[in-house]
Design a protein around this nucleic acid. Structure first.
Lengths: 256, 256
DNA sequence: CGACAAGTTGACCTTTTTCAAACTTGGTGG
DNA sequence: CCACCAAGTTTGAAAAAGGTCAACTTGTCG
């Protein structure tokens, strides 16, 4: 279990980045050896050549300020982005002008895989707080995957995992959808070595609502109901899950 | 444009399969050269060695009768399936015992990509009518992709395309969802060289309803409304789209 | 022909949205 | 340091969309 180590690694990287903020926005090759958290790292392999090649094609970007839209829908696709720190929202404005929130992405996750097929990014990606990204050129990572089977396998796995995004589209009641969402976040934070019961959701309520296919008012009411029942406690962005079992009961089939 | 040719190819293959039904259920290496329709074929390339290798790892299965569940949720993952003919429904029973319809797949499409990440199939796949499948061993196709860059690129593209399944989320009105679904089918049939305005939907109404997150009664009413307004004509499974423009207006942002 | 599954229709009821308005909060500049 | 502003959030009441239940029709297949 190197989750705690990952946590340290993040924190260290983050502070180093802040200190070096003179070089802000200047991409540089990432040191992936020191960052077990990156979703791509294949720890313990023994081929320094390919490892170096991999580090050369990963550009570390940032820290960037909250609100930075680093992918714009429609731009030509050429890279995927790993989130090193910060939370990211993916969204698109549909033909009616409403903007549709597609996902909330946590550190260690990957954004942009869906853009390959159409050669253009299919949605905007925006940092919700200060964050550091790794930009991974897709043509180059694919080339490298031809000579590094482990990397190829990892890429296929990441694509496949991206297909498993929970669908809040179905006709489940609102309580179920919110409970399912909270449990999903809980398990994703846990995977990364953070607390599974206490975390912050950088996404504003309005956007959580759209992600879960309900109105902000409804979202607010459901949150209030959960709080009354003692399932959760919220303070702005900060959320504490007080009763995971009850949430699982609420979430029913959407429970993680 | 080889769409028509693809159509012929399908028909020929299908009849040959029927005639050879003594060998039913016996897999055999596919002749991909004669089948431009298969989603995997990379026409026009010049390396007979890899082409042969590819054909050896594709097992053609069938024809299988309607109702055959050829993937069961939870089974260990080892292959993806291309649909050569027939329509396929993917579905899963959730922890509450309701079964949730995940997709309707047409000839030329691929099923099972989502199972790689967890090493187990995540849903059932059932033939809705008589059909022929190509079973493609994933470990073997991945190995081949290491020496055949075009195949690797194709695989990445197929994974990425699978991420673009339309989301019929609940905050679109039912008319929008049904119109969007019909247009999606229309464009998918068109891509394959069939009529974009006249096709059959092998999925029963009940299941279309579940796929679009509504009740069968609602579905029936919306279909009736569309028919009144002259947008579509239906006769059981058979659907004729009479006014694509009006459907696009109905579908709004869900229009293809 | 008859039984059974699939699909349709109507009346009623629940959930969620809509609209309108009040209320917090964090940041900004006086 | 505090007042103010804008963005985000909460609350209440009315309305609409879609769900539920039950009866009914139609098609299918032995």
């Amino acid at each position: 279990m190197d989750d705690l180590q990952s946590l340290h690694c993040w924190a260290e990287d983050f502070h180093r980045d802040i200190e070096q903020s003179a070089g802000r926005m200047r991409p540089r090759a990432a040191d992936c050896r020191s960052c077990h958290s990156a979703v791509f790292c294949v720890p313990g392999h023994t081929e320094p050549g390919v490892q170096t090649a991999f580090e050369c094609l990963v550009e570390q970007i940032g820290p960037l300020p909250a609100g930075t839209r680093y992918i714009a829908m429609g731009d030509p696709f050429d890279a995927i982005y790993a989130i090193k720190s910060g939370q990211v929202k993916t969204a698109r404005v549909d033909s009616d002008g409403n903007d549709e929130v597609l996902g909330l992405h946590l550190p260690g996750e990957l954004v942009g895989l869906d853009a390959l097929a159409g050669s253009r990014y299919r949605c905007d990606a925006t940092l919700l707080d200060t964050g550091v990204l790794c930009r991974i050129s897709f043509p180059r990572v694919a080339d490298l995957a031809l000579v590094w089977p482990t990397l190829q396998a990892r890429l296929f796995q990441l694509f496949s995992a991206a297909l498993q995004t929970p669908r809040y589209s179905v006709d489940h009641p609102v309580e179920m959808r919110l409970a399912g969402f909270l449990l999903d976040l809980s398990s994703r934070w846990k995977q990364r070595g953070f607390s599974s019961t206490e975390f912050s959701i950088a996404l504003p309520r309005q956007d959580i609502a759209r992600l879960l296919a309900m109105r902000k008012e409804t979202m607010s009411r459901v949150f209030a109901r959960f709080e009354e029942q003692g399932f959760v406690r919220t303070d702005r962005k900060h959320v504490t899950l007080l009763n995971l079992e009850a949430l699982r009961r609420q979430a029913g089939p959407l429970a993680v």
